[in-house]
Write a protein that binds this DNA or RNA. Structure first.
Lengths: 267, 267
DNA sequence: TTGCTCCTCACGTCACGTGAGGTGGC
DNA sequence: TTGCTCCTCACGTCACGTGAGGTGGC
Protein backbone atom coordinates (compact mmCIF):
# COMPACT_ATOMS: atom_id res chain seq x y z
CA UNK A 1 0.00 0.00 0.00
CA UNK A 2 1.63 3.17 -1.16
CA UNK A 3 0.25 6.60 -0.32
CA UNK A 4 0.43 9.61 -2.65
CA UNK A 5 2.47 12.67 -1.75
CA UNK A 6 2.64 16.22 -3.09
CA UNK A 7 5.97 17.45 -4.43
CA UNK A 8 6.42 19.54 -1.27
CA UNK A 9 5.89 16.60 1.06
CA UNK A 10 8.13 14.44 -1.07
CA UNK A 11 10.81 17.16 -0.97
CA UNK A 12 10.81 17.15 2.85
CA UNK A 13 10.99 13.39 3.03
CA UNK A 14 13.86 13.09 0.57
CA UNK A 15 15.79 16.31 1.26
CA UNK A 16 15.74 17.06 -2.48
CA UNK A 17 14.66 20.58 -3.49
CA UNK A 18 11.43 21.04 -5.41
CA UNK A 19 13.38 22.44 -8.35
CA UNK A 20 15.62 19.41 -8.37
CA UNK A 21 12.61 17.06 -8.28
CA UNK A 22 11.00 18.83 -11.24
CA UNK A 23 14.30 18.57 -13.09
CA UNK A 24 14.57 14.85 -12.35
CA UNK A 25 11.07 14.49 -13.76
CA UNK A 26 11.97 16.47 -16.90
CA UNK A 27 14.92 14.25 -17.65
CA UNK A 28 13.01 11.09 -16.77
CA UNK A 29 15.18 10.13 -13.81
CA UNK A 30 12.46 10.14 -11.15
CA UNK A 31 9.01 10.73 -12.65
CA UNK A 32 6.14 10.91 -10.17
CA UNK A 33 3.82 7.90 -10.27
CA UNK A 34 0.97 10.17 -11.26
CA UNK A 35 0.46 13.58 -12.83
CA UNK A 36 -2.95 15.25 -12.66
CA UNK A 37 -3.87 15.81 -16.32
CA UNK A 38 -5.90 18.94 -15.51
CA UNK A 39 -3.56 20.75 -13.12
CA UNK A 40 -0.19 19.16 -13.87
CA UNK A 41 0.27 18.48 -10.14
CA UNK A 42 2.84 15.79 -9.50
CA UNK A 43 2.00 12.93 -7.11
CA UNK A 44 4.77 10.76 -5.69
CA UNK A 45 4.35 7.41 -3.93
CA UNK A 46 5.87 6.63 -0.54
CA UNK A 47 7.76 3.74 -2.08
CA UNK A 48 9.64 6.22 -4.28
CA UNK A 49 11.30 7.64 -1.18
CA UNK A 50 14.10 5.04 -0.97
CA UNK A 51 14.90 5.54 -4.66
CA UNK A 52 15.14 9.28 -4.07
CA UNK A 53 17.49 8.69 -1.14
CA UNK A 54 19.78 6.66 -3.35
CA UNK A 55 19.70 9.34 -6.05
CA UNK A 56 20.57 12.00 -3.49
CA UNK A 57 23.62 10.08 -2.35
CA UNK A 58 24.81 9.49 -5.90
CA UNK A 59 24.42 13.20 -6.58
CA UNK A 60 26.41 13.99 -3.43
CA UNK A 61 29.13 11.92 -5.07
CA UNK A 62 28.72 13.97 -8.28
CA UNK A 63 27.51 11.07 -10.37
CA UNK A 64 25.94 12.52 -13.56
CA UNK A 65 22.16 12.10 -13.84
CA UNK A 66 22.52 10.04 -16.99
CA UNK A 67 24.72 7.55 -15.23
CA UNK A 68 22.42 7.36 -12.23
CA UNK A 69 19.60 6.51 -14.58
CA UNK A 70 21.64 3.76 -16.19
CA UNK A 71 22.37 2.31 -12.78
CA UNK A 72 18.73 2.47 -11.66
CA UNK A 73 17.40 1.13 -14.94
CA UNK A 74 19.70 -1.91 -15.09
CA UNK A 75 17.29 -4.83 -15.51
CA UNK A 76 19.67 -7.28 -13.99
CA UNK A 77 20.39 -6.69 -10.32
CA UNK A 78 23.88 -8.09 -10.81
CA UNK A 79 24.41 -5.61 -13.65
CA UNK A 80 23.24 -2.80 -11.46
CA UNK A 81 25.49 -3.78 -8.60
CA UNK A 82 28.47 -4.05 -10.89
CA UNK A 83 27.86 -0.52 -12.16
CA UNK A 84 27.51 0.79 -8.63
CA UNK A 85 30.60 -0.94 -7.34
CA UNK A 86 32.53 0.39 -10.33
CA UNK A 87 31.48 3.94 -9.48
CA UNK A 88 32.28 3.51 -5.81
CA UNK A 89 35.74 2.27 -6.64
CA UNK A 90 36.15 5.18 -9.00
CA UNK A 91 35.12 7.52 -6.18
CA UNK A 92 37.60 5.97 -3.79
CA UNK A 93 40.36 6.46 -6.32
CA UNK A 94 39.22 10.04 -6.64
CA UNK A 95 39.52 10.43 -2.91
CA UNK A 96 43.11 9.28 -3.01
CA UNK A 97 43.88 11.60 -5.90
CA UNK A 98 42.35 14.51 -4.04
CA UNK A 99 44.43 13.76 -0.98
CA UNK A 100 47.51 13.58 -3.18
CA UNK A 101 46.59 16.90 -4.79
CA UNK A 102 46.19 18.56 -1.41
CA UNK A 103 49.62 17.30 -0.39
CA UNK A 104 51.14 18.39 -3.68
CA UNK A 105 49.65 21.85 -3.38
CA UNK A 106 51.02 22.21 0.13
CA UNK A 107 54.48 21.25 -1.11
CA UNK A 108 54.23 23.66 -4.03
CA UNK A 109 53.20 26.56 -1.83
CA UNK A 110 55.91 25.88 0.67
CA UNK A 111 58.29 26.23 -2.26
CA UNK A 112 60.31 23.24 -1.18
CA UNK A 113 60.99 22.19 -4.76
CA UNK A 114 64.67 21.68 -5.50
CA UNK A 115 65.68 22.59 -9.06
CA UNK A 116 65.40 19.50 -11.22
CA UNK A 117 68.48 18.19 -13.04
CA UNK A 118 67.99 18.26 -16.79
CA UNK A 119 70.32 16.21 -18.99
CA UNK A 120 70.87 15.95 -22.77
CA UNK A 121 70.48 12.74 -24.71
CA UNK A 122 70.69 11.63 -28.34
CA UNK A 123 68.41 8.71 -29.11
CA UNK A 124 69.06 6.48 -32.13
CA UNK A 125 66.38 5.53 -34.62
CA UNK A 126 64.52 2.46 -33.38
CA UNK A 127 62.03 -0.11 -34.52
CA UNK A 128 59.05 -0.68 -32.21
CA UNK A 129 55.71 -2.41 -31.75
CA UNK A 130 53.16 0.29 -31.15
CA UNK A 131 49.51 1.09 -30.54
CA UNK A 132 48.28 4.48 -31.78
CA UNK A 133 45.02 6.12 -30.68
CA UNK A 134 43.10 9.33 -30.16
CA UNK A 135 43.21 9.59 -26.39
CA UNK A 136 41.25 11.78 -24.02
CA UNK A 137 43.20 13.51 -21.25
CA UNK A 138 41.39 11.97 -18.30
CA UNK A 139 41.41 8.51 -19.83
CA UNK A 140 45.13 8.52 -20.52
CA UNK A 141 46.33 6.44 -17.60
CA UNK A 142 43.77 3.69 -18.23
CA UNK A 143 44.43 3.70 -21.97
CA UNK A 144 48.18 3.55 -21.49
CA UNK A 145 48.03 0.66 -19.06
CA UNK A 146 45.83 -1.35 -21.39
CA UNK A 147 47.92 -0.53 -24.47
CA UNK A 148 51.20 -1.48 -22.82
CA UNK A 149 49.61 -4.70 -21.55
CA UNK A 150 48.55 -5.53 -25.09
CA UNK A 151 52.05 -4.84 -26.40
CA UNK A 152 53.58 -7.05 -23.75
CA UNK A 153 51.23 -9.81 -24.90
CA UNK A 154 52.32 -9.27 -28.52
CA UNK A 155 55.95 -9.64 -27.47
CA UNK A 156 55.05 -12.88 -25.74
CA UNK A 157 58.04 -14.77 -24.44
CA UNK A 158 60.28 -13.70 -27.31
CA UNK A 159 63.33 -11.76 -26.14
CA UNK A 160 63.30 -8.87 -28.61
CA UNK A 161 62.66 -5.92 -26.32
CA UNK A 162 65.51 -3.41 -26.38
CA UNK A 163 64.11 -0.58 -24.27
CA UNK A 164 61.49 0.40 -21.71
CA UNK A 165 57.74 0.87 -22.14
CA UNK A 166 57.34 4.25 -23.84
CA UNK A 167 54.87 6.65 -25.38
CA UNK A 168 54.74 9.60 -27.77
CA UNK A 169 52.42 12.53 -27.12
CA UNK A 170 51.30 14.87 -29.90
CA UNK A 171 51.09 18.62 -29.42
CA UNK A 172 47.33 18.44 -29.88
CA UNK A 173 47.05 16.09 -26.97
CA UNK A 174 48.30 18.86 -24.68
CA UNK A 175 46.59 21.78 -26.38
CA UNK A 176 43.10 20.29 -26.68
CA UNK A 177 43.40 17.65 -23.95
CA UNK A 178 42.59 15.11 -26.61
CA UNK A 179 44.87 13.89 -29.36
CA UNK A 180 47.09 11.19 -30.76
CA UNK A 181 49.14 9.13 -28.33
CA UNK A 182 51.39 6.25 -29.37
CA UNK A 183 52.34 3.62 -26.82
CA UNK A 184 55.34 1.59 -27.91
CA UNK A 185 58.03 -0.90 -26.97
CA UNK A 186 61.36 -0.75 -28.84
CA UNK A 187 62.42 -4.06 -30.36
CA UNK A 188 65.63 -5.53 -31.77
CA UNK A 189 64.03 -7.71 -34.47
CA UNK A 190 60.76 -7.68 -36.35
CA UNK A 191 58.03 -9.83 -34.90
CA UNK A 192 54.55 -10.72 -36.15
CA UNK A 193 51.86 -8.33 -34.88
CA UNK A 194 48.10 -8.59 -34.62
CA UNK A 195 45.12 -6.65 -33.29
CA UNK A 196 45.77 -3.01 -32.47
CA UNK A 197 49.52 -3.43 -32.58
CA UNK A 198 51.63 -2.31 -35.53
CA UNK A 199 55.31 -2.10 -36.39
CA UNK A 200 56.74 1.40 -36.60
CA UNK A 201 60.08 3.06 -37.04
CA UNK A 202 60.93 5.97 -34.78
CA UNK A 203 63.53 8.36 -36.19
CA UNK A 204 66.58 9.46 -34.26
CA UNK A 205 66.30 12.70 -32.30
CA UNK A 206 67.92 14.78 -29.58
CA UNK A 207 66.22 15.51 -26.28
CA UNK A 208 66.40 17.33 -23.01
CA UNK A 209 65.55 14.68 -20.43
CA UNK A 210 64.21 14.87 -16.90
CA UNK A 211 63.38 12.04 -14.57
CA UNK A 212 60.14 12.25 -12.61
CA UNK A 213 59.27 10.16 -9.57
CA UNK A 214 55.75 10.19 -8.27
CA UNK A 215 52.23 10.44 -9.57
CA UNK A 216 51.18 11.09 -13.16
CA UNK A 217 49.31 14.19 -12.08
CA UNK A 218 52.58 15.71 -10.88
CA UNK A 219 54.25 15.43 -14.26
CA UNK A 220 53.52 19.09 -15.00
CA UNK A 221 56.45 19.90 -12.70
CA UNK A 222 58.86 18.11 -14.99
CA UNK A 223 57.24 19.58 -18.09
CA UNK A 224 57.51 23.09 -16.67
CA UNK A 225 61.16 22.64 -15.78
CA UNK A 226 62.02 21.09 -19.16
CA UNK A 227 60.10 23.66 -21.18
CA UNK A 228 61.75 26.48 -19.30
CA UNK A 229 65.17 24.94 -19.70
CA UNK A 230 64.70 24.51 -23.44
CA UNK A 231 63.13 27.95 -23.98
CA UNK A 232 65.90 29.76 -22.11
CA UNK A 233 68.52 28.09 -24.29
CA UNK A 234 66.49 28.54 -27.50
CA UNK A 235 66.73 24.83 -28.23
CA UNK A 236 63.06 24.34 -29.08
CA UNK A 237 61.95 22.33 -32.09
CA UNK A 238 58.91 20.42 -33.32
CA UNK A 239 58.16 16.82 -32.56
CA UNK A 240 56.28 14.67 -30.13
CA UNK A 241 57.25 14.47 -26.52
CA UNK A 242 58.45 11.05 -25.48
CA UNK A 243 58.02 9.40 -22.10
CA UNK A 244 59.86 6.31 -20.83
CA UNK A 245 58.32 4.29 -18.01
CA UNK A 246 61.07 2.74 -15.94
CA UNK A 247 60.98 0.18 -13.18
CA UNK A 248 63.67 -0.29 -10.61
CA UNK A 249 65.49 -3.61 -10.94
CA UNK A 250 65.86 -3.79 -7.16
CA UNK A 251 62.29 -2.93 -6.27
CA UNK A 252 59.70 -3.54 -8.99
CA UNK A 253 57.21 -1.36 -7.09
CA UNK A 254 59.41 1.66 -7.61
CA UNK A 255 58.66 3.23 -10.97
CA UNK A 256 59.47 6.52 -12.56
CA UNK A 257 59.01 8.44 -15.74
CA UNK A 258 61.61 9.96 -18.01
CA UNK A 259 60.25 12.91 -19.92
CA UNK A 260 62.10 13.56 -23.19
CA UNK A 261 61.57 16.99 -24.69
CA UNK A 262 62.73 17.28 -28.32
CA UNK A 263 65.48 19.80 -29.03
CA UNK A 264 67.32 20.99 -32.11
CA UNK A 265 70.56 19.31 -31.27
CA UNK A 266 72.59 18.46 -28.19
CA UNK A 267 74.83 21.51 -27.64
CA UNK B 1 65.58 36.50 -17.07
CA UNK B 2 62.25 35.29 -18.25
CA UNK B 3 61.69 34.00 -21.77
CA UNK B 4 58.48 34.44 -23.76
CA UNK B 5 56.33 31.45 -24.71
CA UNK B 6 53.48 30.94 -27.15
CA UNK B 7 50.16 29.74 -25.78
CA UNK B 8 50.84 26.29 -27.20
CA UNK B 9 54.22 25.98 -25.52
CA UNK B 10 52.78 27.30 -22.28
CA UNK B 11 49.98 24.75 -22.52
CA UNK B 12 52.47 21.87 -22.75
CA UNK B 13 54.49 23.16 -19.84
CA UNK B 14 51.51 23.66 -17.56
CA UNK B 15 49.20 20.85 -18.69
CA UNK B 16 46.39 23.39 -19.06
CA UNK B 17 44.44 23.28 -22.34
CA UNK B 18 44.67 26.22 -24.74
CA UNK B 19 40.94 26.85 -24.29
CA UNK B 20 41.35 26.93 -20.55
CA UNK B 21 44.28 29.37 -20.83
CA UNK B 22 42.25 31.72 -23.02
CA UNK B 23 39.42 31.51 -20.53
CA UNK B 24 41.75 32.32 -17.64
CA UNK B 25 42.90 35.34 -19.62
CA UNK B 26 39.31 36.44 -20.32
CA UNK B 27 38.40 36.38 -16.63
CA UNK B 28 41.70 37.99 -15.61
CA UNK B 29 42.98 35.03 -13.64
CA UNK B 30 46.15 34.41 -15.61
CA UNK B 31 46.72 37.09 -18.26
CA UNK B 32 49.79 36.63 -20.46
CA UNK B 33 52.58 39.11 -19.76
CA UNK B 34 52.26 40.42 -23.28
CA UNK B 35 49.68 40.48 -26.07
CA UNK B 36 50.74 41.42 -29.59
CA UNK B 37 48.56 44.45 -30.42
CA UNK B 38 48.51 43.61 -34.14
CA UNK B 39 47.83 39.87 -34.07
CA UNK B 40 46.38 39.33 -30.60
CA UNK B 41 48.94 36.57 -30.01
CA UNK B 42 49.41 35.85 -26.32
CA UNK B 43 52.94 35.64 -24.90
CA UNK B 44 53.55 34.02 -21.53
CA UNK B 45 56.70 34.27 -19.43
CA UNK B 46 58.51 31.23 -18.04
CA UNK B 47 58.05 32.60 -14.53
CA UNK B 48 54.28 32.27 -14.98
CA UNK B 49 54.66 28.51 -15.11
CA UNK B 50 54.67 27.96 -11.32
CA UNK B 51 51.56 30.13 -10.94
CA UNK B 52 49.82 28.04 -13.59
CA UNK B 53 50.79 24.87 -11.75
CA UNK B 54 49.20 26.18 -8.58
CA UNK B 55 46.05 27.16 -10.47
CA UNK B 56 45.84 23.73 -12.00
CA UNK B 57 45.97 22.06 -8.61
CA UNK B 58 43.33 24.34 -7.17
CA UNK B 59 41.11 23.55 -10.14
CA UNK B 60 41.68 19.84 -9.59
CA UNK B 61 40.26 20.51 -6.15
CA UNK B 62 37.28 22.29 -7.75
CA UNK B 63 38.10 25.67 -6.28
CA UNK B 64 36.10 28.30 -8.23
CA UNK B 65 38.16 30.64 -10.43
CA UNK B 66 36.98 33.66 -8.48
CA UNK B 67 38.27 32.20 -5.25
CA UNK B 68 41.58 31.21 -6.82
CA UNK B 69 42.01 34.79 -7.93
CA UNK B 70 41.31 36.06 -4.43
CA UNK B 71 43.92 33.70 -3.07
CA UNK B 72 46.53 34.68 -5.66
CA UNK B 73 45.80 38.40 -5.36
CA UNK B 74 46.06 38.53 -1.58
CA UNK B 75 48.61 41.29 -0.95
CA UNK B 76 49.56 39.92 2.41
CA UNK B 77 51.27 36.54 2.24
CA UNK B 78 49.79 35.69 5.64
CA UNK B 79 46.33 36.53 4.26
CA UNK B 80 46.93 34.33 1.27
CA UNK B 81 48.13 31.43 3.36
CA UNK B 82 45.13 31.71 5.66
CA UNK B 83 42.78 31.52 2.67
CA UNK B 84 44.63 28.52 1.28
CA UNK B 85 44.72 26.67 4.57
CA UNK B 86 41.00 27.36 5.00
CA UNK B 87 40.28 25.82 1.63
CA UNK B 88 42.49 22.81 2.27
CA UNK B 89 40.73 22.16 5.56
CA UNK B 90 37.43 22.52 3.78
CA UNK B 91 38.60 19.97 1.20
CA UNK B 92 39.67 17.54 3.87
CA UNK B 93 36.24 17.78 5.50
CA UNK B 94 34.77 17.12 2.08
CA UNK B 95 36.89 14.03 1.79
CA UNK B 96 35.52 12.69 5.02
CA UNK B 97 31.97 13.49 3.96
CA UNK B 98 32.50 11.71 0.67
CA UNK B 99 33.84 8.66 2.43
CA UNK B 100 30.81 8.70 4.71
CA UNK B 101 28.50 9.01 1.70
CA UNK B 102 30.11 6.05 0.01
CA UNK B 103 29.61 3.98 3.15
CA UNK B 104 26.04 5.15 3.53
CA UNK B 105 25.24 4.32 -0.07
CA UNK B 106 26.66 0.86 0.35
CA UNK B 107 24.48 0.31 3.42
CA UNK B 108 21.41 1.62 1.61
CA UNK B 109 21.94 -0.64 -1.36
CA UNK B 110 22.51 -3.67 0.76
CA UNK B 111 19.09 -2.90 2.22
CA UNK B 112 20.31 -3.56 5.73
CA UNK B 113 18.07 -0.85 7.17
CA UNK B 114 15.88 -2.07 9.99
CA UNK B 115 12.47 -0.34 10.16
CA UNK B 116 12.78 2.67 12.41
CA UNK B 117 10.59 2.88 15.53
CA UNK B 118 8.31 5.92 15.39
CA UNK B 119 6.67 7.13 18.58
CA UNK B 120 3.98 9.72 19.34
CA UNK B 121 4.55 12.68 21.61
CA UNK B 122 2.58 15.72 22.80
CA UNK B 123 4.80 18.68 23.57
CA UNK B 124 3.59 21.48 25.84
CA UNK B 125 3.86 25.14 24.96
CA UNK B 126 7.26 26.46 26.00
CA UNK B 127 9.17 29.69 26.37
CA UNK B 128 12.59 29.79 24.74
CA UNK B 129 15.59 31.93 23.84
CA UNK B 130 15.98 31.76 20.11
CA UNK B 131 17.91 32.92 17.07
CA UNK B 132 16.02 33.14 13.78
CA UNK B 133 17.65 33.40 10.35
CA UNK B 134 17.36 32.72 6.63
CA UNK B 135 19.67 29.77 6.29
CA UNK B 136 21.18 28.18 3.23
CA UNK B 137 21.08 24.38 3.03
CA UNK B 138 24.82 23.80 2.83
CA UNK B 139 25.57 26.32 5.54
CA UNK B 140 23.13 24.82 8.02
CA UNK B 141 25.50 22.87 10.21
CA UNK B 142 27.88 25.81 10.63
CA UNK B 143 25.02 28.22 11.28
CA UNK B 144 23.39 25.93 13.83
CA UNK B 145 26.61 25.38 15.76
CA UNK B 146 27.26 29.10 15.98
CA UNK B 147 23.66 29.94 16.91
CA UNK B 148 23.49 27.34 19.67
CA UNK B 149 26.85 28.55 20.99
CA UNK B 150 25.49 32.08 21.15
CA UNK B 151 22.38 30.91 22.95
CA UNK B 152 24.48 29.02 25.50
CA UNK B 153 26.38 32.25 26.11
CA UNK B 154 23.12 34.14 26.64
CA UNK B 155 22.06 31.57 29.22
CA UNK B 156 25.36 32.10 30.97
CA UNK B 157 25.63 30.29 34.28
CA UNK B 158 21.94 30.78 35.10
CA UNK B 159 20.09 27.50 35.56
CA UNK B 160 16.96 28.15 33.51
CA UNK B 161 17.29 25.62 30.73
CA UNK B 162 14.46 23.11 30.69
CA UNK B 163 15.11 21.17 27.50
CA UNK B 164 17.73 20.26 24.92
CA UNK B 165 19.21 22.37 22.13
CA UNK B 166 16.55 22.49 19.42
CA UNK B 167 15.61 23.98 16.07
CA UNK B 168 12.56 24.64 13.91
CA UNK B 169 12.74 24.21 10.13
CA UNK B 170 10.27 25.93 7.80
CA UNK B 171 8.76 24.15 4.79
CA UNK B 172 10.56 26.59 2.51
CA UNK B 173 13.87 25.52 3.93
CA UNK B 174 13.28 22.04 2.52
CA UNK B 175 11.54 23.05 -0.71
CA UNK B 176 14.01 25.70 -1.85
CA UNK B 177 17.04 24.60 0.18
CA UNK B 178 17.02 28.04 1.73
CA UNK B 179 14.58 29.35 4.31
CA UNK B 180 13.85 30.31 7.89
CA UNK B 181 15.44 28.24 10.63
CA UNK B 182 15.03 28.96 14.35
CA UNK B 183 17.58 27.64 16.81
CA UNK B 184 16.28 27.66 20.37
CA UNK B 185 16.76 26.53 23.94
CA UNK B 186 13.64 26.08 26.11
CA UNK B 187 13.77 27.99 29.40
CA UNK B 188 11.83 27.94 32.68
CA UNK B 189 12.05 31.67 33.43
CA UNK B 190 12.55 34.79 31.36
CA UNK B 191 16.09 36.05 31.14
CA UNK B 192 17.60 39.20 29.62
CA UNK B 193 18.63 38.73 25.98
CA UNK B 194 20.98 40.63 23.70
CA UNK B 195 22.47 40.44 20.21
CA UNK B 196 20.78 38.04 17.84
CA UNK B 197 18.90 36.28 20.61
CA UNK B 198 15.22 36.86 21.32
CA UNK B 199 12.55 35.46 23.63
CA UNK B 200 9.84 33.45 21.92
CA UNK B 201 6.88 31.31 22.87
CA UNK B 202 6.44 28.00 21.09
CA UNK B 203 2.88 26.70 21.06
CA UNK B 204 1.96 23.18 22.12
CA UNK B 205 1.73 20.55 19.38
CA UNK B 206 1.61 16.85 18.69
CA UNK B 207 4.35 14.99 16.86
CA UNK B 208 5.49 11.75 15.41
CA UNK B 209 9.04 11.36 16.70
CA UNK B 210 12.01 9.37 15.48
CA UNK B 211 15.48 9.25 16.94
CA UNK B 212 18.43 9.44 14.55
CA UNK B 213 21.99 8.48 15.39
CA UNK B 214 24.73 9.40 12.98
CA UNK B 215 25.62 12.14 10.57
CA UNK B 216 23.47 15.12 9.61
CA UNK B 217 23.59 14.06 5.98
CA UNK B 218 21.85 10.81 6.90
CA UNK B 219 18.85 12.53 8.39
CA UNK B 220 16.84 11.98 5.22
CA UNK B 221 16.39 8.38 6.36
CA UNK B 222 14.49 9.50 9.44
CA UNK B 223 12.53 12.07 7.43
CA UNK B 224 11.51 9.46 4.90
CA UNK B 225 10.38 7.02 7.56
CA UNK B 226 8.47 9.69 9.49
CA UNK B 227 6.82 11.19 6.42
CA UNK B 228 5.75 7.77 5.23
CA UNK B 229 4.45 6.85 8.67
CA UNK B 230 2.41 10.06 8.90
CA UNK B 231 1.13 9.91 5.32
CA UNK B 232 -0.05 6.31 5.63
CA UNK B 233 -2.06 7.21 8.73
CA UNK B 234 -3.34 10.48 7.25
CA UNK B 235 -2.03 12.40 10.24
CA UNK B 236 -0.39 15.20 8.28
CA UNK B 237 -0.77 18.84 9.24
CA UNK B 238 1.02 22.17 8.79
CA UNK B 239 3.78 23.42 10.97
CA UNK B 240 7.52 23.52 11.23
CA UNK B 241 9.54 20.39 11.79
CA UNK B 242 11.36 20.36 15.09
CA UNK B 243 14.70 18.76 15.86
CA UNK B 244 16.16 18.09 19.32
CA UNK B 245 19.90 17.63 19.68
CA UNK B 246 20.59 15.27 22.55
CA UNK B 247 23.80 14.30 24.25
CA UNK B 248 24.33 11.16 26.22
CA UNK B 249 24.84 11.76 29.95
CA UNK B 250 27.26 8.85 30.11
CA UNK B 251 29.31 9.76 27.07
CA UNK B 252 29.22 13.42 26.01
CA UNK B 253 30.69 12.45 22.64
CA UNK B 254 27.63 10.42 21.80
CA UNK B 255 24.96 12.67 20.32
CA UNK B 256 21.75 12.06 18.44
CA UNK B 257 18.89 13.91 16.88
CA UNK B 258 15.19 13.58 17.57
CA UNK B 259 13.14 14.53 14.54
CA UNK B 260 9.62 15.69 15.48
CA UNK B 261 7.14 15.70 12.60
CA UNK B 262 3.95 17.67 13.34
CA UNK B 263 0.70 15.70 13.27
CA UNK B 264 -2.98 16.54 13.75
CA UNK B 265 -3.31 14.86 17.11
CA UNK B 266 -1.87 11.84 18.89
CA UNK B 267 -4.28 9.00 18.01
C1' DT C 1 54.59 29.63 -50.69
C1' DT C 2 52.26 26.27 -47.77
C1' DG C 3 50.23 24.64 -43.67
C1' DC C 4 50.40 25.32 -39.01
C1' DT C 5 49.41 28.20 -35.07
C1' DC C 6 46.78 31.41 -33.24
C1' DC C 7 42.79 34.60 -33.14
C1' DT C 8 37.70 35.95 -32.09
C1' DC C 9 32.92 35.35 -31.96
C1' DA C 10 28.75 32.60 -30.90
C1' DC C 11 26.75 28.84 -29.09
C1' DG C 12 26.51 24.30 -26.34
C1' DT C 13 26.84 21.62 -21.91
C1' DC C 14 25.38 20.14 -17.12
C1' DA C 15 22.41 20.42 -13.13
C1' DC C 16 19.96 22.89 -11.49
C1' DG C 17 18.57 28.14 -9.52
C1' DT C 18 15.99 32.41 -10.42
C1' DG C 19 12.34 35.01 -11.28
C1' DA C 20 7.85 36.05 -13.89
C1' DG C 21 3.28 35.23 -14.45
C1' DG C 22 -0.42 32.40 -13.65
C1' DT C 23 -3.86 28.67 -11.80
C1' DG C 24 -5.79 25.08 -8.65
C1' DG C 25 -6.79 23.18 -3.74
C1' DC C 26 -8.09 23.50 1.11
C1' DT D 1 -12.93 33.59 0.03
C1' DT D 2 -8.00 34.03 0.88
C1' DG D 3 -3.35 32.73 0.54
C1' DC D 4 -0.69 28.94 -0.13
C1' DT D 5 0.96 25.35 -3.19
C1' DC D 6 1.93 24.13 -7.43
C1' DC D 7 2.48 24.89 -12.45
C1' DT D 8 5.19 26.27 -16.88
C1' DC D 9 8.18 28.97 -19.58
C1' DA D 10 12.52 31.52 -20.31
C1' DC D 11 16.75 32.78 -18.90
C1' DG D 12 21.08 32.69 -15.83
C1' DT D 13 25.26 30.32 -13.87
C1' DC D 14 29.99 28.14 -14.05
C1' DA D 15 34.07 26.58 -16.48
C1' DC D 16 35.14 25.62 -20.06
C1' DG D 17 34.41 22.71 -25.00
C1' DT D 18 32.93 23.00 -29.84
C1' DG D 19 32.93 24.50 -34.17
C1' DA D 20 33.07 28.35 -37.79
C1' DG D 21 35.57 31.47 -40.19
C1' DG D 22 39.56 33.96 -40.59
C1' DT D 23 44.60 35.86 -40.24
C1' DG D 24 49.60 35.94 -39.06
C1' DG D 25 54.35 33.55 -38.59
C1' DC D 26 58.03 30.44 -40.02
Amino acid sequence: MSVLLSIGEFSQMTHLSVKALRHYDDVGLLPPVEVDPATGYRRYATDQVPVAHVIRRFRDLDMPLEQIRTVLDARDVADRDRAIVAHLEHMEENLERTQATVASLRALLEGSAAPLPVEYRSIEAIRAVAIRDEVDWDGTEAWLTSALDDLQRVLGGVDVRCGPDSALYSADYFHAHEGVVVAFVPIRDEIPVSGRAELIEIPAADFAVLEHRGAFSELDQAYGALGTFVAERVLGTDGAIREHYLTSVDDPDETWTEVCWPIRRVP
